[in-house]
Design a protein around this nucleic acid. Structure first.
Lengths: 230, 230
DNA sequence: ATAAAATGATAGCTTTACTATTATGTACAA
DNA sequence: TTGTACATAATAGTAAAGCTATCATTTTAT
């Protein structure tokens, strides 16, 4: 169709793939706009439908409810960033170099080399940071997880976890380390904007990245030493 | 009244302090039960009122809405655990010992020496882990933050951040480190129960604690070395 | 004993979160 | 080009959530 990229999305995150139709793309674009603007709690399908001159009933043909829409955007984001990480680490030589590049991309607010898609990348990233975890933290998580709703995220974590395993083979917490950095960075970005006393905001805008990259570096160094001495 | 402890709570987290009255205590006890059971999204004041044989209107005299109730529970939890940390680190000699004791208490699911209160401590902890961040991640955060809604959490972070400063004086990320560990532990506990492929679940139940304590230890060792060499 | 405060009972209103039905437009195939 | 299938629009309707208001009754402090 008219899209630059089309991502594979777990089909339990929508009733019908919105990437396939004009109205679907409108829903994606404008739900990102609207959720970023008014927040996920105040967001309703009625408001979205009004924004795109459509009807509630039409939106409900794509998504069972707004929570499913959030899961879709979440899966779409992880699919997209995994693809980007793939592209931008392909030419890199060492695994460590690849890992650091990937972590940087996950933490930074806006990727300079962002591939063009039909949505506002900055707003989507902000939604992932501020609202993304809500797609996971609820009572339906086991049901949708069985149907693969979070596979895109899991794949990325497995990939980066694998790289960590390569670099520090005896380290038993590779996936925890990835998710701690990723989720931690999201929360720290939110804290920086709204609760600065829960973080260490500095003039330097990259302090969140620096904190996590330094942490990762120290862990790798230290664990490699231990590995050799054992 | 008949309570073992009464905590100071930012008054913007309730219309009227529920710790002061029988109905208020019932609301606290049963909202914790109910939120833990059905989740925050499905939780309503109507269901709560039915559970305690009261009315919606009566609950609304204590809290403006369920989101405010969650903020109250959040503040109450931080107030309580800061008090417990105070008590259990008082007799300890070194700052590092205090810090590790505190972090352990924050990460563990159930404190063996838990002080007796009138609520189910285990369920409250689980609510903080699963729902707590929702009290922060929303569009009203700036308003309520101005009124001190999160002061109890901030105080605790400042206290532990101060200890880290004592141990590694040149480390510029002390508060980030605290919140990364605390929020990280909450999320990892949730992942362990629902999305094990996002973590590194082991037979050993303490692996979340081990991961974060090891991380902290390495950071302290490494930064002290650097500090001395400079 | 009395006033003040807290709670209960009841009612009602707006918005959210859907579902169902029918009509209209559009796309493509025979 | 006509028919058919499909997507969308228009409209209506329902149950529950999320409140607010009023007044009666009970409890509590003085």
């Amino acid at each position: 169709m008219f899209l630059q990229i089309k991502l594979t999305i777990p089909n339990c995150t929508c009733l019908k793939d919105p990437q396939e139709t004009k109205l679907g793309v409108l829903i994606m674009q404008n739900s990102i706009e609207l959720i970023d603007e008014i927040g996920f709690e105040a967001f309703t399908f009625k408001k979205l439908a009004q924004k795109i001159n459509s009807t509630e009933a039409s939106v409900y043909r794509y998504f069972e409810n707004k929570h499913q829409l959030l899961m879709f955007l979440y899966a779409w984001y992880w699919g997209k960033i995994e693809y980007q990480i793939h592209v931008e680490t392909l030419h890199l030589e060492g695994t460590e170099e690849k890992l650091f590049k990937a972590i940087k991309m996950l933490i930074e607010k806006k990727n300079a080399n962002d591939i063009y898609t039909f949505v506002d990348e900055l707003k989507l990233k902000r939604i992932i940071e501020h609202e993304g975890i809500k797609s996971i933290l609820n009572k339906k998580v086991d049901d949708v997880n069985k149907n693969g709703a979070f596979d895109n995220y899991k794949n990325l974590v497995a990939k980066l976890g694998g790289w960590i395993q390569e670099i520090i083979p005896n380290y038993p917490y590779s996936k925890m380390l990835v998710t701690t950095i990723v989720e931690g960075a999201h929360i720290q970005h939110f804290f920086a904007d709204h609760l600065p006393r829960l973080t260490d905001k500095q003039n330097d805008n990259d302090y969140v990245q620096n904190f996590f990259l330094e942490l990762l570096k120290i862990l790798i160094t230290q664990n490699n030493k231990n590995g050799q001495s054992n």
